[in-house]
């Protein structure tokens, strides 16, 4: 570190009026009044009225989000025949830093794969929505959707099982194709 690396900031110069404080106090009051006037008279606020306005409906520049890249609730993808794509390889549950994916593998009833998930539970309360499962999946079976407004009255309700995750696929596949 040399002296030339230092950035020396000068204190702002106070005029005689500034040293009396009162002009600066009035200036501060003026700033807030300007903002109040802008909100009340011109409606220039920075608020999204949530249930009526949703971020996915807004352009990105106005604070919107892109549902295709948003990391929300998981879904389990289905193939063309409507079967679950997952091959129960446990890659996602191994990659999961929150240990929220619980898979029980069984022998596949179909010819083209050996295993399929008999049970596939994701604890959505434990999940940190990092998307590692999505990255780890070799067959693109698990994906995060743009859905974020899920509610439940009990913790049990928030553990999403296979049928619920497959239903998430049906609900979101139109807006977010595979």
């Amino acid at each position: 570190m040399k002296d030339s690396d230092l950035l020396i900031l000068q204190e702002p110069h106070l005029s005689l009026a500034d040293t009396f404080y009162i002009p600066q106090v009035l200036k501060g009051l003026g700033t807030t009044m300007k903002h109040m006037f802008a909100v009340v008279a011109k409606g220039e606020h920075k608020v999204i009225s949530y249930p009526e306005e949703r971020r996915e409906d807004l352009p990105i520049e106005e604070g919107g989000i892109n549902s295709r890249t948003y990391r929300g609730v998981h879904r389990l993808n289905k193939d063309e025949e409507g079967r679950v794509k997952c091959v129960a390889c446990f890659m996602c549950s191994t990659a999961c830093p929150a240990r929220c994916i619980h898979i029980e593998a069984g022998e596949s009833p179909w010819e083209d794969r050996e295993k399929y998930p008999v049970k596939f539970d994701i604890d959505e309360l434990r999940c940190i929505y990092c998307g590692m499962c999505e990255e780890a999946c070799p067959v693109d079976a698990i994906e995060l959707t743009g859905t974020y407004d899920i509610v439940g009255l009990t913790r049990q309700e928030m553990i999403f099982d296979k049928s619920k995750l497959l239903r998430m696929f049906d609900e979101t596949v139109k807006n977010e194709p595979m």
Binding site: H35, M36, V39, E44, K46
Partner: peptide, 10 residues
């Protein structure tokens, strides 16, 4: 309300 208006909220 005044607090919100001063902070650009509604």
């Amino acid at each position: 309300k005044v607090a919100s208006w001063a902070q650009d909220r509604v």
